[in-house]
């Protein structure tokens, strides 16, 4: 519920990026992440950053909101930068901080690494910001489809993912309910030593597990009663279709990649 805490929690919308086939988004992001490591000049980094920012703007989700969502990883990005700044000892000495020398390569490498890191997180969070979890599940099922031939349980994996998604809110409610019941019996989850607090978790976890198992049992029975007998012979309501806009997205992306190879030094 706290909207700054969850990285890339889905924001409903109707932008071009929202409407892209989730497979398109996954494929592009996969290759983008891969090609980030090919960037080695300021121009190439600039190109990739431009692509990421443009994509973000196209989603019509406010940029500050997206950046705020990255809050938990900002620390890591900054940390990486400073780590490089102080550890790398190549190139010319640019300046001294107190008596500690800072090298030119340290600055450029630190910037490059943290920029890579930033782009990586930013672009992947664009996926989850504009795609419902169930769409991602469908896309994964479809992309992994070829693996069926080697008996990889693609359908089962996708079903498991979608059921987990379905039950997360239910289990969060349940956790809240049980912790209130135990707090009423004098359990203190908030104060005390670490050992005390660990012990306070037991009266919460046991009932939670018991109820999760009960739910699983009920659900399995309901699924069976509704005729579920594995992936064989099933049809699907939710279907993914490649549209013109997907082709457009691929073309644009390939252009960026070509640009990347020209801007490399």
């Amino acid at each position: 519920m706290n909207n700054t805490l969850i990285i890339g929690q889905y924001v409903p919308g109707n932008s071009l990026v929202h409407r892209l086939d989730p497979r398109t988004k996954i494929v592009i992001i996969f290759f983008f992440v891969f090609f980030i490591f090919f960037a080695n000049s300021p121009a190439s980094y600039g190109l990739l950053t431009l692509f990421a920012i443009t994509s973000a703007l196209t989603t019509k989700i406010k940029l500050p909101y997206i950046l705020k969502g990255l809050k938990p990883v900002w620390f890591l990005i900054v940390f990486t930068f400073f780590l490089h700044l102080f550890v790398t000892k190549e190139g010319e000495v640019l300046l001294h901080i107190f008596t500690y020398p800072i090298y030119s390569d340290a600055v450029s490498q630190g910037t490059a690494i943290s920029l890579r890191f930033f782009l990586l997180i930013m672009v992947t969070s664009l996926l989850t910001l504009t795609t419902t979890p169930i769409e991602i599940t469908d896309a994964i099922e479809s992309l992994l489809h070829p693996l069926k031939r080697i008996n990889f349980p693609v359908h089962e994996l996708a079903l498991m993912m979608s059921i987990s998604l379905r039950f997360i809110p239910t289990l969060i409610q349940e956790t809240e309910k049980i912790s209130k019941a135990q707090a009423s019996r004098g359990v203190d989850f908030k104060t005390g030593s670490i050992k005390d607090r660990m012990q306070a978790i037991v009266p919460l976890l046991v009932p939670l597990f018991v109820s999760a198992f009960k739910r699983a049992e009920d659900l399995a029975m309901a699924m069976e009663a509704r005729g579920y007998q594995g992936g064989e012979g099933r049809t699907k309501l939710r279907q993914l279709r490649v549209e013109k806009r997907d082709i457009l997205a691929y073309v644009l992306f390939v252009c960026v990649l070509i640009g990347l190879f020209f801007t490399r030094s």
């Binding site: 309910k177 009266p203 009932p207």
Partner: peptide, 17 residues
């Protein structure tokens, strides 16, 4: 306060552990 106020929640059997 909590010692003085006993609360039986809905489906209280879910708190057994």
């Amino acid at each position: 306060l909590r010692r003085n106020v006993g609360v039986v929640f809905q489906y209280p059997e879910h708190q057994l552990f």
